[in-house]
Simulated scan of single mutants.
Amino acid sequence: MTAVPSEAQHGEQIVPHCHPWAQLLYASEGVIRVRTDLGVWIIPPRRALLIAPGIVHEVTMLSRVNMRALYIDAAVIGTLVAGCRVLEVSPLLRELIVALSAEPLEYPVPGRGEQLAQLILSELAAMETVPIAVPWPRDRRLQALCTAIMEQPGSRQPLEDRALDAGASARTLIRLFPKETGLPYRQWVQQVHLAHAFAMLARGDSVGTIARALGYASPSAFTSMFRRLLGRTPQHYLTEWRGHK
């Protein structure tokens, strides 16, 4: 295992690529978006994305980013990841990642770097998966619709109008959603809203601001959706993250 720190500006992209090793993408500051054939993830601080070896992924910086990428031998990662997992980053894991980033890329074994790597693997095994994945379709018509929704999650444009832009009827697209993404249309949109909400919460935006940005009639309507899907209110995460700044 090795850790590589980097900085990037808003809008920068890392073109689609893959690795023979597993990768943990963690931004201690800023928000990143990762796209694969499996789905799209918006990753704020306090979250990280664990990517299995061989998965092609594209990374877009949604703000100025201070990122640390862990590269983990496929034989070592074992069954910890199949596909991609969003993980809650504990304060301990965060400090371990920062500490390993300060070690040489080829640290001596045995030594401090190896000890840090072992502790990181132990923490990764204990981390909970956060259910904010946005499954991505393969059908080009559905991709056009999904891209439009991802870029403007709060738009109230009728589905019928969006469908015309995508080159299919609304009925056809709604029928395709479960087949292509595993989710009905409305549930897929809610996953998009959750992903954007986490990024905005990490930025410190209020629940009211987030509700308006995502097109909800009121903060209470947004909070109800959030709590129904995750079992906690957005205010819970907002208070928790503010406490860790």
Score class of each variant (00 low, 15 high):
208 G>D: 15
221 A>Q: 10
26 Y>V: 10
146 C>T: 13
107 Y>C: 06
207 V>E: 02
182 G>N: 03
173 L>R: 04
40 V>K: 02
188 W>C: 02
81 V>G: 00
184 P>R: 11
239 T>C: 10
181 T>Y: 03
130 V>A: 07
224 S>R: 15
204 G>H: 08
230 L>R: 02
132 I>N: 03
157 Q>H: 07
173 L>F: 03
186 R>W: 08
146 C>W: 08
24 L>P: 05
37 D>M: 11
6 S>Q: 13
73 D>Q: 13
181 T>R: 01
15 V>F: 07
186 R>I: 08
16 P>C: 10
186 R>D: 10
177 F>H: 13
16 P>E: 09
207 V>F: 01
219 P>D: 03
211 A>P: 10
214 L>A: 04
129 T>W: 02
109 V>R: 15
99 A>C: 08
233 T>S: 15
149 I>E: 04
7 E>Q: 13
146 C>I: 09
155 S>Y: 08
203 R>L: 09
165 D>L: 13
50 L>W: 02
213 A>T: 04
101 S>V: 07
235 Q>W: 12
153 P>L: 01
106 E>G: 12
39 G>M: 09
194 L>R: 01
192 V>Q: 00
68 R>S: 10
63 S>N: 09
244 H>S: 10
45 P>F: 06
85 R>P: 01
237 Y>S: 06
69 A>G: 06
118 Q>P: 10
134 V>A: 02
111 G>Y: 11
54 G>M: 00
98 V>P: 09
245 K>W: 09
37 D>C: 12
162 R>M: 15
33 R>E: 15
48 A>G: 04
114 E>P: 06
167 G>V: 04
129 T>E: 14
140 R>F: 11
144 A>K: 15
208 G>F: 04
140 R>I: 12
4 V>Q: 07
106 E>S: 14
135 P>T: 11
76 V>S: 07
151 E>F: 07
140 R>D: 14
82 A>K: 12
117 A>Q: 05
175 R>P: 11
242 R>S: 07
145 L>V: 11
74 A>Q: 02
108 P>N: 11
80 L>W: 08
148 A>K: 07
66 N>G: 08
125 A>E: 12
204 G>M: 08
223 T>A: 14
158 P>L: 07
193 H>I: 06
144 A>D: 09
83 G>A: 12
166 A>K: 09
123 E>W: 07
216 Y>K: 10
222 F>W: 04
174 I>F: 06
80 L>T: 06
235 Q>A: 14
18 C>W: 14
245 K>I: 11
192 V>E: 00
168 A>I: 11
140 R>W: 08
157 Q>R: 15
16 P>H: 12
117 A>P: 07
5 P>I: 15
151 E>K: 10
11 G>I: 01
22 A>E: 00
114 E>T: 09
113 G>Y: 01
85 R>K: 15
150 M>I: 13
106 E>D: 14
200 M>R: 06
53 P>G: 00
135 P>L: 05
157 Q>D: 10
239 T>Y: 08
233 T>I: 05
56 V>P: 05
